[in-house]
Design a binder for these strands. Structure first.
Lengths: 346, 346
DNA sequence: ATAATAGTGTCTCTGAGACAATATACT
DNA sequence: AGTATATTGTCTCAGAGACACTATTAT
């Protein structure tokens, strides 16, 4: 029953509370109850509560096979999506996720989901944002506590979930299409009251070519696959006044993506781009041993711009350490393999 | 009733969904239903849902009166707390906050709460983190979607809430007491499997001296006030392995603060310290016109260290602009007043 | 006059940006 | 041999840190 919890759970809560040293337990409230008595008598109110789900934006770097044996393969920033087998948004693609159970934290729920979908458990993960628009789910009131995970897709065996839906990496492209500014002047016309910056971003998600053996079993129809491009237009409105500033996202168009997941993905990409600049976040996308050029390519696909090699190497030099291994059979000079210098970074 | 919603709400949801261009509505699922039919027949499941509240960490800069007329007043970073008049945590101090209603977003709920408590509506606010430990509230399953707000306390008329509890600014001090590292080696003893960094932080909250006229009406007993110092010891555990890293907070001691609010405040202070370094966030704590020294003091109390004047002025020069006003009767050379250059920062 | 802060000048050092030059395996 | 990438070197310029010096008011 909604809001009802078993006695064991109640007992545990009480212990938790009492274990924290505090003065409250002996105090009596206006009804003359101690905290212990209050909690024993407590009945959760019968008002409406939201469902709370976690949605995960799982990033990885995928690569496309090159025809020229000498050239390096082109890299992409990719996101894992699942095709929905049920209403609402039937046959649309959605982020992996699920409802949070009463005995777990949101992070535990997210890790459980990640494990089910990819088989991975020890990966980098961080909480992104909690989306609470009451109309974001057409069924009922559902909040989404979103997470971002960074993984190396080579470690993954993709598994279609119980609901027999497809799972697929989608190459993500997120770019600014246009922007405009509005200046709202004060009544006397002498100052500025408010500035609004309106930007339109395009989010494109196209299925990655299947090169991984584990994906063959999914038997996706390749001809159909080429036409499948998910597309969303997001309007980002930044409002500034002297006192405050606020950012708001709106979905102007949305083709093939479920719920507000285009918003969540856009938010994740923005966060990733920002954090990559000042942390070693991108290293979580790499295999154990990698070349510096591979790492630079990862940075480049995330930031959407090319970087100068010497500057890049200087910047990340404290984050990596040399191994004694080199690449082989690459059609050009072999390059040294590096690994994460994770021990030092604490 | 739990999970039940009225028809009007159902209608609105349906429209929202349909307004988004998508292919789903015509599709039929395995039961042969279109999305419209599915939603019309949809009954929310009768499983347990969490309550979701917002908690707000409202920061401001308060100042203590100096005896020496020449010296500048000492500044503090302060947080607004409310004394609880009911169980649980009766007579403990808590962050302002409340439950989210089904017709509003978390941010709207937070702004509503801020308005009730301080009378302010247009202030800087950002979502912090969603705390989901199922045992964080001894009553029942309650998640907290936390927000941080930055305000100028001179604009505030503090109002005791309906539950007749006290409202008070608390000077916040948050500092590292000690840290230790543990290295867990691999079985063969040749490498490192895991590094754990354990830090203990002390969070102290002491009531600010009442200097604001609006606070006089609260008639706090000053002798009692001096003894009232809230104190929490937080243990921050950072676990690193080659693949992942995770951060966990634990409350080792907690005197006088309700729930896990010490964790939320600590998280907010850490976020504020980080963001102040690379944004103009601190400007939201200032009055409309301020001296550069005042602004520097705000930075200093947030970061907990002194800054060099010329370097500081260079760094924030793009964020502020001159006015024609000067301070007066200060016992030393008057200083120019500046204001936020908010129009340019977009 | 003096205490205390306001405001500016400048020297040094570091780090990022930009371009150049050399090295090397694989077909 | 030729190609494409690997790797290192260095010049310049901007910005942060550090210290010093001058200016100005109320008591």
């Amino acid at each position: 029953m909604q809001g009802r919890e078993d006695n064991q759970d109640r007992e545990e809560r009480k212990k938790e509370g009492i274990n924290q040293k505090r003065k409250t337990p002996k105090l009596r409230d206006k009804q003359g109850l101690t905290e212990e008595e209050f909690l024993a008598a407590y009945q959760p109110g019968d008002y409406v509560r939201p469902s709370v789900a976690t949605d995960m934006v799982i990033f990885t770097i995928t690569e496309q096979e090159e025809k020229n044996y000498r050239k390096l393969s082109e890299k992409n920033l990719s996101v894992l999506l699942i095709e929905r087998g049920i209403h609402p948004y039937l046959n649309c693609w959605a982020l992996p996720g699920g409802f949070i159970c009463p005995n777990e934290t949101a992070e535990q729920a997210a890790r459980r989901e990640l494990q089910e979908e990819t088989g991975l458990s020890h990966v980098y993960m961080e909480q992104l944002y909690t989306f609470t628009d009451p109309k974001r789910d057409p069924r009922t009131w559902v909040m989404s506590c979103s997470y971002m995970a960074l993984i190396d897709c080579r470690k993954v065996r993709l598994q279609a979930g119980d609901d027999a839906a497809n799972v697929q990496w989608f190459h993500a492209s997120y770019r600014l299409l246009n922007e405009r500014k509005e200046y709202h002047h004060t009544e006397d016309g002498r100052g500025i009251k408010e500035i609004i910056l309106i930007q339109e971003y395009e989010l494109l998600l196209s299925p990655d070519k299947i090169e991984h053996p584990a994906l063959d079993s999914l038997m996706l129809d390749t001809t159909k696959q080429d036409k499948l491009i998910l597309r969303a237009i997001l309007q980002k409105t930044i409002t500034k006044t002297e006192e405050m500033e606020s950012v708001e996202y709106q979905l102007l168009e949305n083709y093939g993506l479920a719920f507000d997941h285009a918003k969540i993905i856009a938010y994740a990409i923005e966060r990733l781009r920002r954090k990559v600049e000042y942390t070693g976040l991108a290293l979580h996308l790499m295999p154990t041993e990698f070349t510096l050029t591979q790492l630079q390519q990862a940075y480049e696909v995330i930031l959407g711009k090319t970087l100068l090699k010497p500057a890049f190497r200087r910047k990340i030099s404290e984050l990596v350490e040399e191994t004694e291994h080199y690449t082989e059979k690459e059609g050009h000079r072999p390059s040294r393999l590096f690994r994460r210098k994770w021990e030092k970074q604490i």
